[in-house]
């Protein structure tokens, strides 16, 4: 089992909300139309039906139709389209959906 970093463990110990734990992935989904992902590390794969993002230790996969990048910068990416699923890709297996 993967061990949490010192920063995460310290934040848990001090009851600091998960939102402000530095560097953690933050995903917001607005209906079926938009996904906002914070603290990503870049795009791994980009197509109309699938966007795969590097999120450090995890890999996030967004599946859908007519997916497009609305805006992107170093930390944040906003995707739109008809969202079908957002999930983490496990090593050696298919993705676990949110």
């Amino acid at each position: 089992m993967q061990k949490d970093s010192f920063r995460v463990r310290a934040a848990d110990l001090l009851d600091i909300p998960a939102d402000i734990k530095g560097g953690l992935l933050h995903i917001e989904i607005t209906g079926k139309r938009e996904v906002f992902i914070e603290n990503h590390k870049g795009i791994l794969e980009l197509s109309e039906n699938e966007v795969t993002l590097n999120a450090g230790k995890e890999t996030v996969r967004v599946l859908g139709q007519r997916l497009r990048v609305l805006a992107m910068n170093n930390n944040e990416i906003r995707l739109s389209g008809i969202i079908e699923s957002v999930g983490f890709v496990r090593e050696g297996s298919s993705c676990s959906q949110l």
């Binding site: 870049g42 197509s47 109309e48 497009r68 990048v69 805006a71 992107m72 910068n73 170093n74």
Partner: peptide, 16 residues
């Protein structure tokens, strides 16, 4: 796109 993001070059309205 990743290099753009890393260099702080923001973009929007991407279509494929």
């Amino acid at each position: 796109f990743n290099l753009c993001a890393r260099h702080g070059i923001e973009f929007w309205d991407m279509t494929n």
